[in-house]
Simulated scan of single mutants.
Amino acid sequence: MFGDDVAREARAHALAAWPEEVCGVVSGGRYIRVENIAADRENGFEMPAETWLKFEPEAVIHSHNAKVHPHWPSKADMDSQIAAHIPFGIVTCDGEVTTPILWWGDHCLDAPLTGRSFVPGVFDCYGLVRSWYWQERGIRLPDFARSKSWWDEGENLLADHFEQAGFRAIDASEVRPGDVFFMRLVSKVPCHSGILLEDGLCLHHLDGRLSRREPIGPWLKRVTHWLSWSY
């Protein structure tokens, strides 16, 4: 996203400090190493408060220990990115090799709607709903920090936040293309969302599959909510 030099420096930083997490910022197009002042540096990162005034970051990059954390943002990572309103990136390291940087943030709204690989918190079902509304309607829906399996952790993320995102619940008889559906998939609460399209098609993104358009018919029995954007 910011060029090979930034990626090379961030990955070298992650490898040098493993198994601890490292953090840095992109400023003036360069990667700058920043001290990780977190109490538990093997499981998280925290940058000194003056980092923001000193460097005016264009992006934040931190590392994950591959033996502890997966190569996608945690709920805490998402909280930080949403609050900062700039791109965040993750380098994952196992002590010997590092991954390419995984970037996330609102720039991902412009990614193609179909053919996406599933990445929790980045390219997932709600991420696709956000992208569709941005690309097709010019509407920037709010993002919400989430863990990979929030529905198994006592949360009801979709049902609790749809009004905050500007939606209202509607009856199935009112549904029109562009409306959103929620589904329950082997879960106690709705855990999946997508968009109704023209001609009986829908757009959605399931874990383990590429995002796609396909007929809505086989999925209707799983739908728990229909929603229309109302702002």
Rank of each mutant, 00 (worst) to 15 (best):
L196M: 07
D143H: 03
A12S: 14
E58W: 00
V186T: 13
H64F: 02
L196E: 04
E58K: 06
P73N: 12
A59K: 01
E50S: 14
G105E: 02
D106N: 10
H107L: 03
C125I: 00
F181A: 02
H85G: 06
P218L: 07
F118N: 04
F123L: 13
Y133M: 11
L220Q: 10
D171L: 12
I61Y: 02
V186A: 15
L197W: 04
F144I: 10
G24C: 05
C23M: 09
T98C: 15
E9T: 15
M78T: 09
Q135T: 08
H107K: 08
S187G: 03
A83W: 00
A7I: 04
K188V: 13
C125E: 01
L203C: 07
A169V: 13
K67Q: 12
E198T: 04
G28W: 09
V68N: 11
D106L: 07
L220G: 00
S131Q: 12
P73F: 07
G44I: 01
E153D: 11
H107S: 13
H204Y: 01
L128P: 00
V26S: 06
A16D: 12
P19I: 02
P215K: 11
E174T: 02
R130K: 12
G127C: 01
T51P: 02
D207H: 15
F55R: 07
L196P: 05
A159P: 06
A83P: 08
G89W: 00
S74A: 15
L185E: 11
A83R: 11
A76F: 13
R176M: 07
D94E: 05
D4K: 15
E20T: 12
G138D: 04
A76T: 14
C93D: 10
I61K: 07
F2A: 01
A111F: 14
I101E: 02
D143F: 06
Y126P: 02
Q81S: 08
L201Y: 10
I61V: 13
C125P: 06
F144Y: 10
K148G: 13
E163M: 11
F118S: 05
V34N: 06
W151V: 06
W134R: 15
E153K: 12
T114M: 02
D77F: 05
W150M: 00
F2N: 06
A59P: 06
I101L: 00
F45C: 14
G24K: 05
A39V: 14
T99Q: 03
L109W: 08
G24E: 03
I86F: 00
V26H: 04
I37V: 15
H85L: 12
A145R: 03
K75D: 13
E214P: 09
K221A: 12
V6S: 06
Y231D: 11
E155K: 11
A169E: 15
L157Q: 00
T98H: 05
W226R: 00
L141N: 01
I90F: 10
E136S: 11
L220R: 14
E214M: 13
A84W: 09
G89T: 07
P57E: 04
F181P: 00
I61W: 04
M183S: 09
W18M: 06
G121P: 06
E9V: 09
A145M: 07
A7R: 11
T98M: 05
L141T: 03
F123R: 10
I101A: 05
N65T: 05
N156E: 10
V186G: 11
S230W: 10
D94F: 09
E155A: 08
